[in-house]
Structure formats: structure tokens, C-alpha cells
Write a protein that binds this DNA or RNA. Structure first.
Lengths: 167, 167
DNA sequence: TCTACCGTTGACGTGAACGGCAACCTCTTG
DNA sequence: CAAGAGGTTGCCGTTCACGTCAACGGTAGA
């Protein structure tokens, strides 16, 4: 299970290497290149690297982040500004990871990780609230449906002449 | 519990009488008058009546609809166009109600009611799908949180010198 | 009847989140 | 090496869902 990296490996695990061009990320995630550039413009998602030509290069980390952002947008209805807030704490985790690679002492890494955990907890809390509200809304709809169904049954009974043997 | 209507009652139950001015509805529901007019403009919510002066008058039915619309917007993230679709079927129910007051025969009222029920079922189905997706998203977040918590525990263990008696 | 407050229409403005060009660059591939 | 595919910046356009302001009119209470 533990990946044995080849001898000439870089000091980065494979999935953080920036190999993906913008079109590739777009295809994989379903967002347009324009949107990715826009998100970068407002400071929401920076590509892992640039090439001399100015070309953006993303890693799988960013690609997953794109999906994460879309979920925060579509499922929770957050604005990009709010998402930025949420992700800022997540960035803390990324910093913690870099600190780990830089062989930073545990004393430095621990608070970063704690921040990330706390931010994640807040997010989960937010999601739970939303789930509760939607559930309640659904229950209301279901109840309305049941009332209508009862009414329909009444009308159907009224319509059908009362025969003793059904069918 | 059954409201005994006064002798000189109109043929409308009290809660469908259009008495509410736009500002009142706005106050009760939290949406602005501008928004109510806009919704009317795009055919989303027509006031129950107008007065000679052009003043809009809403009934409690519309007021509840306002809340319904906001929920469809905020909780489900539907566009006003989509909401219009959803409500168009709900209007069927309103027509059924009018048919009832017009003493329409059961044969006419039943299909209208059936349509409304079907539309409601579709809505509930949609909500359930959304709930499922959000739940899944939450689970992913929770899982991430747990992984981070494990990591934190490791770091804490590493930090604290291994003493046999805790404290 | 005067005044303060709603309300009306009509028009234009706005913020968020992109879409869509033009003009240009840079790989790759036959 | 020419051509095409894909990338870049810059900038203006667009859609949605309203906000805002002006100019005006009806209504209710002192």
C-alpha cells in the first residue's frame, strides 16, 4: 500500500505535480476555462504553477478544489465570496502540508491542522442546518400532498357509486 | 374549530379575501415591494385584485406563495423561471379550488387535483434528490474531518512525551 | 382640508458570475 | 515550416434578480 517512489523521484508526491492544462481541468470538472480564469482573478483558485509562456498548470489538488467549489456553490448556494472564506481556512491545511514537507516541527504544524479541523466543523454544521431546513420544507410538501390525496380519495368515492363488492 | 361565518358572509372564505396591501405582504414575508412587483412583471405572482387606483391587493394565499417561492429559491436554488414551472402546476390546484366554488362537477375537479398531486410529487422527488446529494457532500466533509482528527491525534501523541500515568 | 404616508409606473443602475470576442503567442504534428 | 489546436491578456457584453430614483397619485388620520 505504501507507494515506493522511484529513486529519481521529486520530493513531491505525484498527485501534487502540476501537469494539467486549463482545458484538461475544464473537461474533467465541467467548468469552462473562462470560469477558472475568473476564479483566479478574484483570488479563489490559483493554479499550482505557470510556465514561461504564461500557461497555467494545475495539479489534481486544484482539480478537486474546483469540484469542491462547485458543490459549495450549487448545493449550499454560497456566493464566491463566502466560498473564499470557507476555503481560506482550508488553505491552512495546505500550509500545514507544506510545513510537513519542510520538516517543520510538530509545534508549528499542530495549530494549522487544528484550524483546518475547526473550519471543517463549521462547514459541516452549516450543511446540517441546511439539511434540516430542506427536510422541513420537504415534509411540508409531503403533508400538502397527503391532504390533496385525501381530497382526491373523497372525490373518487363520491364519483364511484357505492357498490359492496369492490371489483 | 369550524369557523361559523356571519350571516352576511361573502361566498369567499376569509383567508382568500384580498385585503393586504403590498407593504403589508412585504413586511410579513421579508421581501421588498419592488421584488413583489418584479415577480408580477415576469408573471410569477399575480395579486388577487387591483383597486381602481391601481393599488395591488393580496390575499393570504399569495402571501404564503411568496414564502413558498423564497424557499424554492433559497433552499433548492431554483431560478425564477424554474419556479414558474413548478408553480404553474400548483396553479392547477387553484383552478380546482375555483372549480369547487363554482360547484363544478366532480368529473371536472378530479383531474385538476390529480395534476396538482403529480406536480407536488415531482417536487418532493426533486427535493429528495437534493437532500441525498447534500448528505453525501456532508459525509465527505465529515470523513475529511475525521482523517484530519486522526492526524492531529498522531501529532499530539508525538508532541507529548509518553508518560504512563496521564496527568 | 392639510399633511404624512403608501402606493403607482417608468426608467435607469447594479452586483454577481460569467460569456464572447480580438489580437496575439506557442507548441506539436504532418 | 506551415497549419492547427490550444493557451494568454484585455476588454466589453450579458443575464438574473432585483435596487434606486423621479414624478406623480390616492388615502387616512388630526
Amino acid at each position: 500500500m505504501t507507494v515506493t517512489r522511484p529513486a529519481q523521484a521529486t520530493d513531491e508526491p505525484t498527485d501534487t505535480e502540476p501537469r494539467l492544462r486549463i482545458g484538461e481541468v475544464a473537461k474533467q470538472t465541467g467548468v469552462t476555462p473562462r470560469t477558472l480564469r475568473y476564479w483566479e482573478e478574484i483570488g479563489l483558485l490559483r493554479p499550482a504553477a505557470h510556465r514561461g509562456s504564461g500557461e497555467r498548470l494545475y495539479s489534481l489538488v486544484e482539480q478537486e478544489r474546483v469540484i469542491h467549489i462547485r458543490e459549495l456553490q450549487d448545493l449550499l448556494g454560497l456566493t464566491l465570496a463566502e466560498i473564499q472564506d470557507v476555503l481560506r481556512s482550508e488553505d491552512t491545511l495546505e500550509r500545514a502540508r507544506r510545513a510537513a514537507r519542510a520538516a517543520a516541527p510538530t509545534q508549528k504544524r499542530l495549530p494549522l491542522l487544528a484550524d483546518a479541523i475547526e473550519a471543517n466543523d463549521r462547514l459541516v454544521e452549516r450543511i446540517n442546518e441546511r439539511l434540516a431546513r430542506i427536510s422541513q420544507f420537504r415534509d411540508e410538501c409531503v403533508e400538502r400532498g397527503e391532504r390533496m390525496a385525501v381530497r382526491r380519495a373523497e372525490l373518487e368515492a363520491e364519483l364511484a357509486p357505492p357498490t359492496r363488492s369492490s371489483r
